[in-house]
Deep mutational scan, measured.
Amino acid sequence: SLEEAIRRAEEALRKGQTFEYAGIRVTTQEALEKFRKWAEKQK
């Protein structure tokens, strides 16, 4: 689910890792916010 993907992205960010979902790379807090906004639109 998208909620699960967001949780995994947050977890990866805390560990300093890269999270990738549907071709979207989350490597920074800013990218995480963009990913969250994108995920909201997918619902």
Score class of each variant (00 low, 15 high):
S1H: 13
S1P: 12
S1A: 13
S1Q: 13
S1N: 13
S1V: 13
S1I: 13
S1E: 14
L2A: 04
L2H: 05
L2G: 02
L2M: 08
L2S: 02
L2Y: 10
L2P: 05
L2D: 02
E3F: 08
E3W: 11
E3P: 06
E3A: 11
E3N: 10
E3K: 09
E4F: 06
E4Q: 10
E4K: 07
E4L: 11
E4R: 09
E4H: 09
E4W: 12
E4Y: 07
E4G: 08
E4N: 10
E4I: 09
A5P: 02
A5T: 08
A5S: 05
A5M: 14
A5L: 15
A5F: 12
I6D: 01
I6P: 01
I6C: 08
I6W: 05
R7M: 12
R7K: 13
R7G: 07
R7P: 03
R7I: 12
R8L: 14
R8N: 12
R8G: 08
R8Q: 14
R8F: 09
R8H: 10
A9N: 01
A9G: 04
A9D: 00
A9R: 00
E10F: 06
E10H: 05
E10V: 10
E10Q: 07
E10M: 08
E11T: 06
E11H: 06
E11S: 07
E11W: 03
E11G: 04
E11L: 06
E11C: 10
E11A: 10
E11I: 09
E11N: 07
A12W: 05
A12M: 08
A12L: 06
A12H: 05
A12Y: 07
L13R: 02
L13Q: 02
L13D: 00
L13C: 03
L13N: 01
R14H: 08
R14Q: 12
R14K: 13
R14C: 10
R14D: 08
R14G: 09
K15S: 12
K15L: 15
K15F: 10
K15D: 11
K15A: 14
K15W: 09
K15E: 11
G16V: 02
G16D: 04
G16L: 04
Q17P: 02
Q17T: 10
Q17S: 08
Q17Y: 12
Q17G: 11
Q17K: 10
Q17M: 13
T18D: 12
T18L: 12
T18M: 12
T18K: 07
T18I: 15
T18Y: 15
T18V: 15
F19E: 01
E20I: 12
E20Y: 09
E20M: 07
E20K: 04
E20V: 11
E20Q: 07
E20W: 08
Y21N: 01
Y21L: 05
Y21V: 04
Y21A: 02
Y21R: 01
Y21I: 07
Y21P: 00
A22W: 07
A22V: 05
A22H: 13
A22D: 09
G23C: 11
G23D: 05
G23L: 02
G23E: 04
G23H: 05
G23I: 02
G23T: 04
I24N: 04
I24A: 03
I24D: 01
I24M: 11
R25G: 04
R25M: 14
R25K: 14
R25F: 13
R25D: 05
V26T: 01
V26R: 00
V26W: 05
V26I: 15
V26K: 00
T27A: 14
T27Y: 07
T27G: 12
T27N: 14
T27E: 15
T27L: 06
T27I: 06
T27V: 07
T27S: 14
T28F: 03
T28A: 04
T28M: 04
T28N: 13
T28G: 05
T28E: 03
T28Q: 03
T28P: 02
Q29L: 15
Q29T: 10
Q29E: 12
Q29S: 09
Q29R: 11
Q29P: 13
Q29Y: 15
Q29I: 13
Q29H: 12
E30W: 07
E30T: 08
E30D: 11
E30G: 07
E30F: 06
A31Q: 15
A31K: 05
A31G: 14
A31P: 00
A31S: 15
A31Y: 04
A31D: 15
A31V: 06
A31L: 08
A31H: 14
A31F: 05
L32T: 00
L32Y: 06
L32I: 04
L32M: 06
L32K: 00
L32P: 00
L32Q: 01
E33Y: 06
E33Q: 10
E33M: 09
E33P: 00
E33S: 07
E33D: 13
K34F: 15
K34P: 01
F35W: 05
F35Q: 00
F35Y: 03
F35N: 00
F35C: 02
F35K: 00
R36L: 13
R36H: 04
R36F: 06
R36K: 15
R36T: 06
R36V: 12
R36Q: 06
R36N: 02
R36P: 00
K37P: 00
K37C: 07
K37I: 14
K37N: 10
K37H: 10
K37G: 07
K37R: 14
W38L: 04
W38P: 00
W38D: 02
W38G: 00
A39T: 05
A39C: 12
A39H: 03
A39V: 15
A39Q: 03
A39S: 04
E40F: 07
E40K: 07
E40R: 06
E40L: 09
E40G: 05
K41D: 14
K41H: 12
K41M: 15
K41G: 14
K41P: 03
K41Q: 15
K41E: 15
K41A: 15
Q42N: 08
Q42V: 13
Q42R: 08
Q42M: 14
Q42S: 07
Q42Y: 10
Q42H: 11
Q42A: 08
K43H: 11
